[in-house]
Amino acid sequence: MKTRFIVTAALAVFLSGGLTLQVVAQDAATTLKNRQEAMKGFGGNMKAINEFVEKGAGTAADVAAKAEAIEQGSKQIVAWFPAGTGMDDGVGKTGAKKEIWDKPDGFKAAADNMGVLAGKLKEAAATGDKQQIADAFGALGKNGCGGCHQTFRAKLD
């Protein structure tokens, strides 16, 4: 009797859990897609700034504008990672590590740090000095993008 109750209850929990997961999965797919696009946007900006640093393509003003975009985007990063959308949650292909939700303060600090470093690149761009721009760009890439990726993103492919 008791056993049957437990089995039934367990089954009910299992089924409802499964249904909930399906609904979440649909939302999560959108979340994953959107934030991956956003990350590619950061990457596109960084790549363009690198073209300036390496080959002098574009102007320092372009660099400033892209740094500004990165700075603004950094403020939204935390919101792009709602709970339940990590790589262990079975909601799709993502390298978002559980550390994002285990260490929310650290994750926010990493995003904030990227904003600060992007701000410094903006300032460097305002001076027009190539070396300053190159240094600020290097710091933003290594410590901003890379700094976060070191702890919070896993390589997938």
Partner: peptide, 14 residues
Amino acid sequence: TTGMLPDGDFVGSG
């Protein structure tokens, strides 16, 4: 030199 991949992504992890 900088950790940047060809498409503008930056390496992470180790």
